[in-house]
Design a binder for these strands. Sequence first.
DNA 1: GGGGAGTGAGAGAGCGCTCTCTGGAAGAAT
DNA 2: ATTCTTCCAGAGAGCGCTCTCTCACTCCCC
Lengths: 332, 332
Amino acid sequence: MRARPTLEKVAARAGVSRATASRVVNGSTRVAPEIREAVNRAVDELGYVPNQAARSLVTQRADSIALVFPEPATRVFSEDPTFSGIIRGVSMEIEEADKQLVLMLTGLAGGYQRVERYATNGHVDGVIIASMHGTDPLPGILARRGVPVVCSGRPSVPSSLPYVDMDNVGGAERAVRHLVEQGRRRIATIAGPQDMIAGIDRLNGYRAVLHDSDRRSIVAVGDFTRESGTSAMRQLLADDPELDAVFVANDLMALGALTALRQAGRQVPGDVAVVGFDDIPAASYTEPPLTTVRQPTVEMGRRLARMVLDLEEKAQVMLPTELIVRGSTTTP
Amino acid sequence: MRARPTLEKVAARAGVSRATASRVVNGSTRVAPEIREAVNRAVDELGYVPNQAARSLVTQRADSIALVFPEPATRVFSEDPTFSGIIRGVSMEIEEADKQLVLMLTGLAGGYQRVERYATNGHVDGVIIASMHGTDPLPGILARRGVPVVCSGRPSVPSSLPYVDMDNVGGAERAVRHLVEQGRRRIATIAGPQDMIAGIDRLNGYRAVLHDSDRRSIVAVGDFTRESGTSAMRQLLADDPELDAVFVANDLMALGALTALRQAGRQVPGDVAVVGFDDIPAASYTEPPLTTVRQPTVEMGRRLARMVLDLEEKAQVMLPTELIVRGSTTTP
DNA sequence: GGGGAGTGAGAGAGCGCTCTCTGGAAGAAT
DNA sequence: ATTCTTCCAGAGAGCGCTCTCTCACTCCCC
């Protein structure tokens, strides 16, 4: 394999100085057309590609951004496509901007320092933190160190850091209101973990609508896993055998709840209507198909990337969610 | 934010030359203990972290490796956790080696050139290609350009490139043999796409066992999606209403097949036994739970990473698969 | 026609680091 | 005591690039 050509070589071949070659490569307009032409030809002929390390060294930019998943890696890539959607969205924008995506899965405590070291090190122009725990200290640390940071999901402690969040409250409200409109009287919920903003917000949305419609709330708490959905549903049925609807804070738990309901001999939606949250692929294949709230995960990734790349203003953004009505709440 | 300290600063503080500081930072043994001590103290006090760009520039190493998914990104992160497992495995090893993971999702044709440019550019010490299409030209191109490449999945055209593959043939054989042992007489298969090595190998495994056991093969072909599993199953039932078992080349299609069987009024495993392949999370939650073949995806990621990092010899490796027997083939 | 204004190209410094080469001190051998 | 060897620290070049500064040249206006 032959050595990679340098700018010097390109300049020599085009009969110009290195500085001029650099100008052409970087798209400066202040170069005479015929010279630009000559340089471009030399670039093509030699197959020149700029050395990123050299460029970074002088520009102090890295042309890459880090996407950090502080969750234990095992959880990150489960059946939940939320993270996949974010990765895809981020990846699209990053690619468009001709930058690189550095993926960091940092489940353990030690991983924090690794990310911190790496990010404060000029390796990276910005960091996207796909944390679901609002209390994560990492965003604050990095921000204080001067690294551009954008979070997915609103931090639970108010801060001025930019983030992109889903409208969890609104989605939950729409879901529960849908159950109310279907004439359901006793609407229970299986809430998510209350140390995650998504878990908190979705429960708040549920409570808000029930309060308005003068129904009492029936709450069980799960941890977003399928198993916890099953046991939470059993507990709800024990608490209130008369319940006729349940809003489940994510689809995975809703799948578990469906199992528990089947085992308890309840018909869905005849006896009990079920609404989930997330719209995972499996939701369309349950029996009956699951009514759920869709999240714009890819869009979320795109916005995160655009913010961290400074293609749009860093702000605190809320993305709308959408209720997808299927068979688990209505009979055709 | 204060400027990052340079080696120069560290050296000054420790009262040594930059060269000596560099030696200490890079763990050279030929430094007097007290000096090493002094430098380390200065590093700690200043919070020094080496500038990777500067280091790369002189060492010609990038300390990062690329993980490329040439599939359309949409497919990559679907319900199929194979890719997630690979990412996690790769990530673990990369982290351990203190290198970076650059993720490239290059669905479109143009993406190839981007990867090629990026990888032949010294940005990256090696490339892991998570392709499932054995005919992918990218590995060959990169290898020819002198970039270390390791593939996940055996290329369909024989080559000398290193790869890590799953024992698809063996897994399929074990699955079908299991059906034979259960006394099934008419064993059909829903094969995967025949332009993917996994699809081909799993069909070959099926054929081999049927041939040995003197049964005739009944084949329908799907494309690894759930929908294709449903329609393939319908077709099989039309072709041979008497079939009493089906080996499905992946779990997603098996889920679809289960739906078709239910709609056709067949009991599983009473009338028809079903085996899948992959062991996706959903497989344990179907009714009945799905017998399937588990793949060591995380291990695959680890091996891929270790090879590309030269922690183990680059070779053509086959990882064992494991039959997980559940309710879709046996009654308790 | 002369002097500024404007424009485009080159010279050269320097980003932060590694690594070879050199030099000096200390210990071993003669 | 002198030379040789060993060992460790420093000097300095240079990785490939960007960017400022300088300079040469053209153009235009008085």
